[in-house]
Amino acid sequence: MSTQPSKPDNLKIIRRLLLTVVCMFAFGFALVPLYEVFCDLTGFNGRFTDGQAAANTKAVDTSRTINVQFVTRVNKGMPWGFEPEVRSVRVHPGETKVVNFLARNPTGGNMVAQAIPSVAPGEASLYLNKVECFCFNQQPLAAGTETAMPMQFYLDPEIPEHIHTVTLSYTMYDMTQNMTPDALAAIQPTAE
């Protein structure tokens, strides 16, 4: 047709638009790591990278005391017992504390679990540093045994004045089905 514009011109636009489509599809997936970075930076949703914090070198601020509560849950469909040794501790910002969590596998089979942390208020997650935590790794537990799992943490003295209570929640998820039978069979009862 006489008025058909020159082809390359169309192609150029189409190519750019298709590139945009591909980029936006990739962007959809890129939102996953972006979201994580965003959550880490802002404490959004009380999620935080469960990385190991550096050992505590902060000065202790004895002028303030913050109540740290522990909430433990096991996901439904999982029969483990999972409790903190204490329900809450009072700490000064900058002070390092160790809290033990007890896990019990009442079933007749070896199991592996993963604890997923969450902090409320979300903002507090920015100031909660874990030096050592069972939640960094999966927890194997032999049939019918129990174990004490330590968690060592301190609150950054920079923590905002208006935060008086920090709740740290762990939800235990069953990871057994992701394990090979050999790996499961190799789980030994812990020395304790």
């Binding site: 936006m24 599809f25 959809g28």
Partner: peptide, 14 residues
């Protein structure tokens, strides 16, 4: 449409 339909495609794929 160009900007957001691919994001929906990403979401359903996930």
């Amino acid at each position: 449409l160009i900007a957001v339909m691919p994001v929906l495609a990403g979401a359903v794929t996930m």
